[in-house]
Simulated scan of single mutants.
Amino acid sequence: MTAHAQTAHKITITPLDEKVAVLEDVPRESQYGLKFVGAAIASPATATEAGYAACTVSLTGRGVDGNAAAAPGAQGSAFWSIGIEMARKEGVLSLMGGLSASMVRELVYSGIRMGTYEYFKDKLHAISKGALSREGLLLKIGAASIAATIGSALANPADLVKVRMQAYYPDGSPYRNMRHAFASIYREGATLAASRGASVLAGGLGALYRGVEATTIRGIVLSATQICSYDQIKQSLKKRGMMQEGVPLHLVASTFAGLFCSITSNPVDVVKVRLMNDKKHEYKGTFDCVRQILVKEGPFGFYKGFGMCWARLGTHTILTFLIFERIRYLFGIEAM
């Protein structure tokens, strides 16, 4: 075999359930692209497989209109009670409201935040000339924050439509489908802007981007705890020789990551959902919403529906990382 042939087929052996050959000569740019595709596939797949109905019940339990949430311990506040009640009154399909919008949102949001995380890690490490260590949390948090900011901002319209379609409407949902929901929300904003002599286009887009501040903050908080904790836990367990790369390691790391991100993101989720469903414009903005919840409901108001959040986000986190790692393996890319 020639020297050229030997270098062209240079491989590394990586343990992942069984030993797998991973090509080293795949261009780095192609790897970034494949990672994005893998994340984009993994997250929408999880949205359907990880109990999408739990997300709808979770939002209902938090009180998407700001008033509907039952107090902790009150009748109907339990996760299963709310789900059964919704299915009984509105039909089983009510638990799947906004699924199409959720798929679009996940494709954009999680595809970007997870798919570009390692790209920004590499860039920040290069820019800092190694001052930001690859083993340190600062590099991970910085990369996750940048990726989440971009993903959250771009996905806000789909996120808002998803929340609106999941909301409880006593007289039936005003939205026939995702497309109708987008058009209706845009029209509401455009009509309001026209009545005030403002730009119709700005009003329509403003309606679709309502709550974008809370959405972006939530994306950063969630990603900084979810992705970074998964990355850090995996790294620590492997470094100490406690576990090797493979499904058991992915399961342990993603389980802890799901708990951590549920704890940190639940308060922001409550604020975001309240703002997105504030059709009467009772809140002046994100900080006013935070102030009103704190004054009227106290600190625990930010943790309404935590059990539901953990059931949804914890499961979603575990399956997302398991699927993402498996897709990377099939693509011939090293584990995260």
Score class of each variant (00 low, 15 high):
11 I>M: 15
221 V>I: 05
14 T>E: 15
108 V>Y: 12
122 D>Y: 06
103 M>A: 11
258 G>K: 08
227 I>Y: 04
294 L>M: 03
98 G>M: 08
314 G>R: 07
216 T>L: 09
180 H>C: 10
307 G>M: 03
224 A>S: 06
48 T>K: 07
71 A>S: 02
255 T>D: 10
162 K>T: 13
66 G>R: 08
106 E>D: 04
128 S>G: 12
255 T>P: 02
310 W>M: 09
247 V>Y: 15
335 A>W: 00
82 I>K: 12
260 F>R: 04
327 I>Q: 02
30 S>F: 13
198 A>V: 02
304 K>M: 04
80 W>F: 15
225 T>C: 03
80 W>V: 09
233 I>S: 12
86 M>Y: 04
301 G>L: 07
284 K>R: 14
247 V>F: 15
15 P>E: 11
317 T>Y: 11
229 S>D: 07
142 G>C: 11
138 L>A: 15
217 I>R: 05
89 K>E: 13
172 G>S: 07
286 T>Q: 07
73 G>L: 11
208 L>N: 09
313 L>I: 11
125 H>P: 03
111 G>C: 09
101 A>N: 03
51 G>Y: 01
147 A>T: 05
285 G>A: 05
79 F>W: 10
295 V>H: 08
194 A>C: 14
327 I>Y: 06
76 G>T: 09
146 I>Y: 06
139 L>I: 04
176 R>F: 14
276 M>H: 10
113 R>L: 14
284 K>L: 15
7 T>K: 12
310 W>K: 00
216 T>R: 10
149 T>R: 04
130 G>E: 15
8 A>Q: 14
125 H>I: 03
246 G>S: 13
325 E>Y: 08
100 S>V: 06
223 S>C: 08
314 G>W: 03
117 Y>L: 13
283 Y>W: 12
283 Y>N: 10
53 A>P: 01
50 A>R: 01
206 G>I: 14
238 K>L: 08
309 C>F: 12
262 S>H: 09
194 A>T: 14
25 D>G: 04
86 M>T: 11
69 A>I: 00
177 N>K: 10
94 S>F: 06
211 G>N: 04
308 M>E: 10
296 K>H: 03
248 P>K: 01
66 G>I: 02
231 D>M: 09
99 L>Y: 05
334 E>F: 10
273 V>C: 07
326 R>E: 15
230 Y>V: 10
201 L>T: 15
322 L>T: 05
143 A>K: 00
151 G>I: 01
43 S>C: 10
39 A>H: 05
28 R>C: 13
167 A>P: 02
333 I>S: 03
330 L>T: 12
255 T>R: 09
290 V>P: 02
62 R>V: 13
282 E>A: 00
79 F>S: 01
102 S>K: 08
226 Q>M: 12
33 G>F: 12
67 N>V: 00
69 A>M: 13
89 K>V: 01
237 L>N: 03
264 T>E: 02
163 V>N: 05
199 S>I: 14
303 Y>L: 06
310 W>Y: 14
187 R>T: 11
